[in-house]
Simulated assay, not measured.
Amino acid sequence: MGDTTTIPALDGDGAIPIYLARPAGPPQAAIIVVPEIFGVNAGIRRKCDDWAKLGYLALAPDIFWRFAPGVELDPDVPEQLQQAFGYFQQYDADDGVKDIEAAIHHLRRSEGCAKVGLVGFCLGGRLAYMAATRTDISASVGYYGVMIDQMLNESHAIAHPLMLHIPTADHFVGPEAQAAIHAGLDSHPKVALHDYPGLDHGFAAEMGDRRDEAGAKLADQRTRDFFAQHLA
């Protein structure tokens, strides 16, 4: 359903590869799908295609385009998992926010979508939080976002709705980090937090060993309802 193309980087220095999935008719809104540390792989493309089937224009940026363009990794393959961790260490999240800004500009100015949402996973979940604090994204959703507990001092800047999905057995985001996120965000009028008892990082992956079917369906329905409300 989708195509691979590029959009201009925010600073005009280069082009960001993207996967773009279009709905059958005029889009009701746009959704940026920010991948995990495994690139715009088959699972992320499927997520974009599913949003397009629901009437959204879906765009997934290649977050590693500056140093590993086009990489697609499988988290169930140990060597590729380690490769992904290496890319994560190289990655500058501030650059990620710039790329999200570039995507927002493209979707609003070139595609005519006034309402733009964002859904991100893992590193993309962190970027969903950063987009909520640093951009004018219409609504954001983060799945098992990493390092959010270290950025709670930015929460005062959240001006548009943000939802976070938090698996309680996340081995990358431990109990102390989860407690800090709840303490920092539970009372925020723009933020909704959902815990998933006993589930681990990656539970909403489209395919592979990490997926928990019931948990993924629940979180994804909450995300669909959230965007239906805030991107209408």
Rank of each mutant, 00 (worst) to 15 (best):
R22A: 15
G112S: 08
G43K: 01
F85N: 12
C48R: 07
A159D: 06
G55E: 10
A68G: 07
H105Y: 12
V33I: 10
A84F: 07
A214G: 07
A177G: 02
G120S: 05
V97K: 02
A139H: 08
A159R: 12
D50C: 01
A42R: 04
V116T: 05
R45T: 12
Q82P: 08
L54Q: 15
G96S: 04
A52H: 09
S187C: 03
T5D: 00
Y144N: 09
F203R: 05
R46Y: 08
G142Q: 04
V97R: 03
I148S: 06
I18V: 15
L54E: 14
G198I: 06
H106I: 02
L218N: 11
L81S: 10
V97S: 03
A216Y: 03
V40R: 00
A180S: 07
P189F: 10
C122S: 15
A204G: 01
A42Q: 04
A15G: 02
F85G: 05
A128Y: 04
P27V: 11
A216I: 02
A68H: 10
R109M: 14
I31A: 08
S155M: 09
Y56I: 06
H171C: 00
G184E: 00
P23H: 12
F38K: 00
F172K: 13
G14N: 03
A9F: 05
A102V: 02
F67A: 11
V77D: 10
H182I: 04
V71I: 15
A139E: 11
L123D: 08
D13H: 13
A204R: 04
A42C: 00
H182N: 02
Q221C: 02
H171T: 12
L127M: 13
T5A: 01
V173L: 02
H201D: 10
A60R: 01
D195T: 06
I166F: 01
L54T: 03
P189D: 13
D225H: 04
R46F: 06
D195P: 00
H160A: 13
I148C: 07
P78C: 11
D74K: 02
P175G: 02
F172N: 14
H165C: 01
G120W: 07
R211E: 02
G124V: 06
H171S: 13
I181K: 01
A232R: 14
M207D: 15
T168L: 06
A131T: 11
V191L: 10
G125Q: 10
D170S: 10
A132F: 01
S110M: 11
L10S: 13
G174I: 07
Q89T: 15
D186M: 03
W51I: 02
C113F: 06
E36N: 10
I137D: 08
R210Q: 12
H194D: 02
I166L: 15
W51F: 15
Y144Q: 08
P75G: 04
R126Y: 09
Y87A: 07
E154F: 04
T6Y: 01
Q80I: 05
A214V: 14
D136R: 12
H194Q: 09
D209Q: 14
Y87S: 06
T133M: 04
F67N: 13
D136S: 12
R22S: 15
P27E: 08
V116S: 05
R22M: 14
V40E: 03
F67H: 15
A29R: 12
I100L: 14
C113Y: 05
Y196Q: 06
E176I: 00
G124S: 10
I166V: 12
V40S: 03
